[in-house]
């Protein structure tokens, strides 16, 4: 048996991370475009049911089941996957670019002496070969990457780059044990516990309207202006990560991949550039408005209304205009 395209699944306590399905969708696309088979690999403990569930739309699901990969560690995952790659010789190894994948995918590539293109927003075909696209400069510029050589090429896709609803569940695959020799594997790190951070005092996920502040605000003193804007709109105040990091707003008001996910009917982003880690937390909002002085700020790509201008001029004017009209 051998493998062409291998998607590495992500699970914790037997629960699949939904982003895995996005990587499977990407894999199905590549499988069609390149005429290659698609397999999925699951590592963990007590993952039998999960492996069965994953048997749709793929040729097979490989499992590597053992204590040593019971809790995720970079050591355990890399060593196990390295053995599997040596046996199965996949041409592509695909991931969804989650925090877990950030932690081990490039170590794995280094251990395999191969390359990884991380955090891709998609791929396009150039004749027979795929060109992978990833963002640089925090989403302001895109870059095309290609691989030369056949060895295992590693690619991770940005969360949200593919839609899990597009999963083609046509075929049903089989589960196969990957036959990893776990006794050879040494895990040096020890996972102690998993816990939730700051107590969430505000639940922004229920907010009707949100005014969200980014680093463009420059100084904590300027938060007053944002408070005023939020007040006239009867909105909750939220922020991008740097604003919370600096303590200008409590951590539980941070929107994004490491903060809250929100879906208000109005999301007004002020002085926020629109890095992907912020966007994943708010892109499903109803009406998105962005105020930013940089016309190329990525936030404008997902906005419905955009104001290109200095927030210190635009916001006071907007406060006045809203007061008048409400």
């Amino acid at each position: 048996m051998s493998v062409d395209i291998l998607v590495v699944a992500e699970q914790r306590d037997g629960v699949l991370n939904r982003a895995t399905l996005e990587a499977v969708v990407a894999g199905q696309g590549l499988s069609k475009d390149l005429g290659l088979d698609l397999s999925v690999l699951v590592l963990g403990k007590n993952i039998g049911d999960l492996a069965n569930d994953l048997c749709v739309g793929v040729k097979e699901v490989l499992i590597a089941e053992h204590e040593k990969v019971g809790d995720y560690t970079a050591d355990g995952y890399c060593a196990a996957i390295k053995q599997i790659v040596a046996k199965e010789a996949p041409k592509y190894i695909l991931f969804s670019h989650t925090y877990m994948v950030r932690d081990y995918s490039s170590k794995l590539a280094a251990a395999l002496n191969r390359q990884l293109v991380s955090d891709c927003v998609g791929y396009k075909m150039d004749g027979e070969s795929p060109v992978f696209v990833r963002q640089i400069f925090q989403g302001k510029i895109d870059a095309d990457f290609t691989f030369s050589g056949d060895g295992a090429n590693l690619v991770s896709f940005q969360v949200g780059a593919f839609n899990a609803d597009n999963l083609d569940s046509g075929t049903s695959g089989e589960v196969r044990d990957a036959g990893v020799a776990f006794d050879e594997i040494e895990v040096r790190t020890k996972v102690l516990d998993i816990f939730e951070g700051v107590k969430q005092e505000v639940d922004l996920s229920k907010a009707e309207r949100i005014v969200s502040v980014g680093r463009g605000i420059k100084k904590p003193e300027n938060m007053d202006l944002m408070n005023e804007l939020a007040a006239v709109l009867d909105a909750e105040l939220a922020a991008s990560r740097p604003v919370c990091d600096d303590g200008w707003l409590p951590l539980d008001r941070q929107v994004g991949s490491s903060g809250q996910t929100v879906t208000p009917s109005l999301y007004l982003a002020v002085g926020i550039s629109g890095a992907i880690q912020h966007i994943v937390g708010m892109k499903n909002s109803g009406t998105i408005v962005a105020i930013n002085k940089d016309p190329h700020a990525p936030i404008f790509d997902i906005a419905d209304y955009g104001v290109v201008g200095d927030l210190f001029e635009v916001v006071p004017a907007l406060i006045a205009a809203v007061k008048e009209i409400r």
């Binding site: 390359q115 510029i141 691989f147 030369s148 404008f300 209304y305 201008g309």
Partner: peptide, 25 residues
Amino acid sequence: SSLNFNRIFIPEKTKKAEIFEGDPK
């Protein structure tokens, strides 16, 4: 390197925002 950084470009806009520019008021 077996990884080739081919070209960089300004991404195409996927959604058309209605853009306002000019006098703040």
